[in-house]
Design a binder for these strands. Sequence first.
DNA 1: ACTATATGTGCAAGCGTTTGCATTATATTT
DNA 2: AAATATAATGCAAACGCTTGCACATATAGT
Lengths: 339, 339
Amino acid sequence: MAKSSITINDIARELNVAPSTVSRALNNSPKISDFTKQKIIEKAEKLGYNLNMVASSLSRSRTNTIGVVIPFLNNFFYSEVINGIEEIAYNKGYRILVAQTKDSFDKEKEILRTMSATRVDGVIACLSSETTTTDHLRSFSAGGIPMVLFDRVRFDFSCRKVVIDNYSAMQQSVSHLARSGYKNIAHLGGPSSCNIYSEHAKAFKDTLKKAGLPLLPQFHLSTNLTEEDIAEAVGIWLNAEIKPDAIITANSHAALVVSKLIREQKLSIPEEIALTSLTCEPALHFVEPQITSIELPGGDTGRTSMTYLLNEIEHGEQKNDTTIKPFQLIIRNSSFRNK
Amino acid sequence: MAKSSITINDIARELNVAPSTVSRALNNSPKISDFTKQKIIEKAEKLGYNLNMVASSLSRSRTNTIGVVIPFLNNFFYSEVINGIEEIAYNKGYRILVAQTKDSFDKEKEILRTMSATRVDGVIACLSSETTTTDHLRSFSAGGIPMVLFDRVRFDFSCRKVVIDNYSAMQQSVSHLARSGYKNIAHLGGPSSCNIYSEHAKAFKDTLKKAGLPLLPQFHLSTNLTEEDIAEAVGIWLNAEIKPDAIITANSHAALVVSKLIREQKLSIPEEIALTSLTCEPALHFVEPQITSIELPGGDTGRTSMTYLLNEIEHGEQKNDTTIKPFQLIIRNSSFRNK
DNA sequence: ACTATATGTGCAAGCGTTTGCATTATATTT
DNA sequence: AAATATAATGCAAACGCTTGCACATATAGT
């Protein structure tokens, strides 16, 4: 369908040189005289020549493309990660190809298959919440394409990983609430099949115990974090004899939903009930009161992941280590009482 | 760097057939017997064969890839559009390649250049807010690649366009406020170089006049919608002798910022001042009071754009018309007084 | 039996670049 | 001036797949 575009052969013919000379000239090879280069570049310009990357990729067997797979596009953390990746990638002459799994395992497999077919030079991925096995990762790797995993990873798959210190995030959140005098802390967690959430859960239990606070099983939930799950959990909590006086949510969206539900029940935050979130997004600053949260280093995670990937792509470096990124607990008005 | 992957030639050799037969079998050509197909598919499976899309693309001179260019990834509307595009694309065997301009004209040019080099089969784009010319679109089109523009478009470039009925959106917003008894309506608008915002501006003026309301120049602003711009405008408005009793913001982010600023000034929404937004995002439901807004048909916009693009790619259909998508004004608590 | 018609497979060119090696022209050394 | 190094360019194969055309069997029609 595309209008017949012009090729290096067209340029070569018009100038009575070999196509190889044109190719070298356009790639600024030192083997071509400045005079010839000049001539070729001008002619290319004039004819409106545009490199055919697919031919180039085939010939060089590299596409200079990095696949990025994330659960959702419309997510603050992931878009920060993408920005970080792009920043490094762009400077090194790579472009990125983003795809979202929508937290579906099947979509994740599908995406990896097509990225493999597309011959991306490497992949940076955050696994879907449904992912509990690694066969698809292994068969992807069988193609020899480097991969680095971030955030939601599987430790039973060998590759470099960049993760958040989820354990400490929960630990600090609980400690903060405990210091502020909250006693019945509830945790609205995510599916424990996912490393993030199981780390949260472990830290939650450990830290409560260390702080000498009770761990009521009904206050320690693992859900799929859908709006229904959240409404159900909060509904039960707020109508029980023993109510939580603080809630920690696995992510910022859950925190927003919870804050709304609490308001609807005419309970006040943070006086009657405190609220903190384990991830951040701008909306947390816009609700009243502003919600205490963990600020994740998205950009940094992206930059590090990309840097690791490049080391593997360009220097064949193969590692199986895990980099743990620090975070910041940002205390806002939702989590301490003005006594 | 990639482990030498296996090709159709490997399969052909092992089975003593021609590579062309393998190719046809794997593409399920009717010209190959079921027996042979079976044999080939099994062998391919066994060897872990994976189609090399770049070779295939070069050979067929089509990539089955659609480029999608948007200002920002992390935006509710655009991610809905992407979902709509994906939905159609996926079913037709196309994958999509998303890139963000971050509202930079230079980045937009750059992206179009590399998409052209990548030989995407078509492009769906929403122009950056900096874009005021169309030369880059023309030179892109010179490559013969179809394009459809959505949301932020330029009418001086010939192609199909899918836009929101921005004029009516503003018109209905103003009418709603007027009906609710607000008199001094202010408009926090975007840069008028962009079709969206100039349409808003025109509708704002027209509708005020029609409603017999005053149009105070200081209440009709065109800004770049940065947080600073917003803070400055609102600061002036709220401290003037004549304050607005209603504010219409160009987008949801501005609405959130404004709602926060109003709260900080201890003014009440909607009693002392009403607030409505011309775009929507989930955060608008989480703030108190919930903010009245225009719900844009993102998914629908994406699906329509993709459908148009496919018509052009697959049937050579060339049009230069504009499809205007309807929207819904969702009235929430920020814009009417409980008398 | 003897052309016509399917049916299944192979051959080889082509897609647009890149790149190792060969070749020629020019410059340097002895 | 001959021998050697250097610089600039061309040749041709390769990257892995697709596809029009030719070819060889097998089936059907008369």
